[in-house]
């Protein structure tokens, strides 16, 4: 509705950032659930090692392959280690790998995508062909190749996961920047004395954040699966480190003989994490988008 500039302001005040977040959570129970699940994950990652009842690496041959009980909620594995403790402790490593990988691909993808989208021309063509090349590989096989070639370390899992995700970010940012390149506010920013690089970094790029948030959140889920997948086939994290992928891989051998808890619980943890991140996306987008505020 149009008011003339001279009409008095309505009594109600506009929402602040916090009130807006509260509104998004209140109006969307799924987002609220996702945030609660995320909080559980974060608590497990930060406080996990000091909360768990047993040392995740301590073996006890006498207790090997015990089914879930009051003392060992998720049972014990073939070396008598407590599965519950291992599942909780592994959260930190799995989250760290995926967050680091996503942050890296977000950063590199944003820079490359912004450049391609803003300046266009031959730079755009070259970068696009580069992204096409990466995406032409089966991504998991590419990640396997990178880890195998660079060496079997946690850092290399991060790099490999980052590389395969860069094209997704770069393409998204490229499209978002491209449609705003000649927008009125970008021109106004130039009139205000901003050189191209400032217009791009401070005016255009932040407007690409809402859709990026959805991508980040989905990507965190994929990254966790990817890291676990690499460990599952024996690349990256090495036993006896507690990690969901390894635990599923080790437990898989025992499913046939009836010890289902070894693979099931770490598998559940993996599913929980991926599910959380997938649910988180839309809520995160609504929170970073100022236009959603009333």
């Amino acid at each position: 509705m149009t008011n003339s500039g001279s009409t008095p302001l309505p009594a109600e005040q506009q929402d602040g950032a916090f009130a807006h977040m509260a509104y998004v959570l209140r109006s969307n129970p799924v987002t609220l659930l996702a945030f609660c699940m995320f909080a559980v994950l974060m608590i497990a990652a930060v406080l996990g090692p000091s909360l768990v009842p047993y040392d995740p690496l301590a073996s006890n041959a006498a207790l090997a392959l015990d089914p879930p009980s009051l003392a060992h909620w998720f049972g014990t594995d073939s070396l008598g280690r407590d599965v519950f403790s291992r599942v909780i402790v592994a959260t930190r490593l799995d989250l760290a790998i995926s967050i680091a990988a996503v942050a890296l691909s977000f950063l590199i993808g944003s820079v490359l995508g912004s450049i391609a989208g803003y300046w266009g021309g031959w730079l755009d063509s070259i970068l696009n062909r580069l992204f096409d090349t990466i995406m032409a590989f089966p991504l998991f096989v590419l990640a396997m190749g990178i880890v195998a070639a660079l060496g079997n370390t946690v850092e290399n899992i991060v790099y490999a996961t980052a590389v395969i995700n860069i094209p997704f970010y770069a393409r998204l940012v490229r499209a978002e920047v491209n449609i705003r390149r000649d927008a009125g506010f970008a021109q106004a920013a130039k009139l205000a004395g901003n050189a191209d690089i400032r217009v791009l970094a401070l005016h255009i790029f932040p407007n690409a954040l809402p859709p990026m948030m959805v991508q980040v959140s989905l990507n965190l889920g994929w990254a966790i699966l990817n890291a676990a997948g690499l460990s599952f086939i024996g690349l990256g994290v090495r036993p006896p480190t507690a990690e969901w992928g390894i635990m599923v891989a080790e437990g898989a051998n025992f499913i046939v003989s009836g010890e289902w808890w070894l693979a099931l619980f770490p598998g559940f943890a993996l599913m929980f994490a991926v599910f959380t991140f997938n649910l988180l996306g839309d809520g995160l987008r609504d929170i970073v988008d100022p236009r959603q505020r009333s």
Binding site: A183, G184, F185, Q187, A188, A189, K190, L191, G193, N194, A195, D196, H203, P206, N207, P290, R291
Partner: peptide, 24 residues
């Protein structure tokens, strides 16, 4: 021209008021 000393002397009011403001 963005960093030219004469930048301030020439300014513009844009047609589309919605499009010409950074939504953030």
């Amino acid at each position: 021209f963005a960093r030219d000393p004469r930048r301030a002397a020439i300014q513009m009011v844009f047609q589309d008021a919605t499009d010409s403001f950074n939504p953030r």
